[in-house]
């Protein structure tokens, strides 16, 4: 199941500039702590002067689910695997997980990128490493 389209706003402009370059950007503070991209202040020390830094894009599965669409008339339904990934830098990332049907906790994964639709930003997802 493919990913859906997404558009940028002021908060996500820099992040999507990153994904267009093939980078998963996180926030870093002057002390070197990593925070998730949505963070408005450092999740470790609280400072607000955050920079964008590229993640290595690798991590491990913390938890996963498979989201099922409503069944169609023929009984079939879409099934999309999602996961919480702990990036090796520390932050967690809620994401689509592809190329694996039944992941397990701790599975090593890496980021990949796709442009789901013509008018969409580039979105990250994860696959087994």
């Amino acid at each position: 199941m493919s990913l859906g389209p997404v558009s940028r706003n002021d908060e996500t402009a820099a992040f999507f500039d990153g994904t267009a370059r093939g980078e998963l950007l996180l926030r870093t503070c002057p002390s070197g702590h990593w925070s998730e991209p949505e963070a408005a202040c450092c999740t470790t020390c609280g400072v607000t002067d955050l920079s964008w830094s590229a993640s290595k894009g690798t991590g491990r599965v913390v938890s996963w689910s498979a989201v099922h669409g409503r069944p169609r008339d023929d009984g079939s339904a879409d099934r999309r695997v999602i996961a919480v990934v702990e990036l090796d830098e520390g932050p967690w990332w809620w994401t689509a997980l592809q190329d694996v049907e039944q992941p397990s906790e701790g599975l090593r994964v890496q980021v990949a990128f796709t442009v789901p639709a013509e008018d969409s930003e580039t979105v990250p997802y994860f696959v087994p490493a």
């Binding site: 990913l3 389209p5 689910s65």
Partner: peptide, 24 residues
């Protein structure tokens, strides 16, 4: 229309409470 951080989740198939509680 999915946009911003919330839209990024929707894009991945994560919308509403069901998938988030399922992960928990």
């Amino acid at each position: 229309t999915p946009s911003g951080w919330r839209g990024l989740l929707t894009s991945a198939g994560i919308s509403g409470a069901n998938p988030l509680y399922a992960l928990a």
